[in-house]
């Protein structure tokens, strides 16, 4: 009980801190940006430490977003849930890289990846990548956020996030990219399965706008599906029946656009539509098979 109360207090403190930090950082960056209108800048973006040169990029993102989850009751409950601040840090050194997801509203953990370039050619690349492919969910926190009972989630065990190691093949042609990730979830992860992720993205340039149109198809193995959308025998109750799903997939189409505001700031807006396969839709834990996500924000480039 004490642990639950602590979790709730920590959850709300995190929300308050998020808003306070967002406000402070935003005002600071606005002030900074007006002091740095140099012309035709050549930002070195390189740092030498112990005679070794790293290249890097850092950005801060401020985003308003609307998101949905297929999990029953998992919704954005108040205005703070629609606000996100992100620190995006990319680092490259002799083929090793740490790169954040420049689109995601919660980029620090969701979508950030660490890896090594095994081979780089003009039009293709082979990498080994470590990243979180699936976000978990905590039924207890979903119920607390909603401030009402969600019978399908009551007493359900928490599903952890899914870090995985992948081999990624990327093919580049003009302003398009096609990449395939074959990922194995950590053996010590409770899901302990694998996934195949196919992603395509095309850049359309219109005047100062960059418009990215893309889509992905992700195939999840039985174990992955069972861990995130299945109901084990010990979790069965009158509101959720035993469910042992087979492999399933998720398809996404998305459009995202960027526009420069100044040398330090750019505006970005995006929308995606996700479709989950029937085997996910039939889970007692799922109440949405199609979800729509929207984001609108500004990014500051250091």
């Amino acid at each position: 009980m004490l642990s639950t109360k602590n979790n709730i207090v920590a959850h709300y403190l995190k929300k308050i801190a998020k808003v306070a930090i967002a406000f402070t950082v935003f005002i600071s960056l606005c002030t900074l940006s007006t002091q740095s209108l140099a012309v035709e800048k050549e930002l070195p973006k390189e740092t030498t430490v112990f005679n070794q040169t790293f290249s890097w990029q850092a950005m801060a993102g401020f985003t308003l977003y609307h998101t949905q989850s297929p999990i029953i009751g998992d919704e954005q409950e108040d205005e703070f849930d629609h606000l996100s601040i992100s620190l995006l840090l990319d680092l490259y050194y002799k083929g090793f890289f740490i790169q954040s997801n420049h689109r995601r509203s919660s980029a620090l953990l969701s979508g950030a990846e660490i890896g090594y370039q095994l081979h780089v050619d003009d039009n293709w690349e082979l990498d080994i990548v470590r990243k979180i492919y699936l976000q978990g969910y905590n039924p207890e926190l979903i119920i607390e956020d909603k401030e009402e009972n969600v019978p399908a989630l009551a007493g359900l065990k928490e599903r952890d996030w899914a870090p995985a190691t992948a081999i990624r093949y990327s093919y580049y042609k003009d302003d398009s990219i096609l990449s395939i990730d074959v990922a194995s979830l950590s053996p010590w992860n409770k899901a302990n399965g694998w996934l195949l992720d196919l992603y395509y993205n095309d850049l359309i340039i219109y005047k100062n706008w960059d418009i990215y149109v893309g889509g992905s198809l992700t195939y999840y193995s039985n174990n992955v599906m069972n861990y995130y959308y299945g109901i084990s025998e010990e979790e069965v109750n009158q509101d959720r029946a035993y469910y042992n799903p087979n492999a399933g997939f998720k398809g996404i189409i998305e459009v995202y656009a960027q526009y420069p505001i100044s040398q330090k700031w750019y505006f970005n807006v995006g929308m995606s539509q996700t479709y989950y396969s029937n085997v996910i839709g039939r889970s007692p834990l799922v109440d949405k098979q199609h979800i729509t996500q929207l984001m609108l924000g500004v990014n500051y480039v250091f």
């Binding site: 012309v39 035709e40 930002l43 993205n201 995202y256 995606s272």
Partner: peptide, 19 residues
Amino acid sequence: INVSWVHKKSPRKRRWRLF
């Protein structure tokens, strides 16, 4: 009329999915 930019040109071609 001066021309400037937000991102320095980079040989890296990485893309990021939205959500």
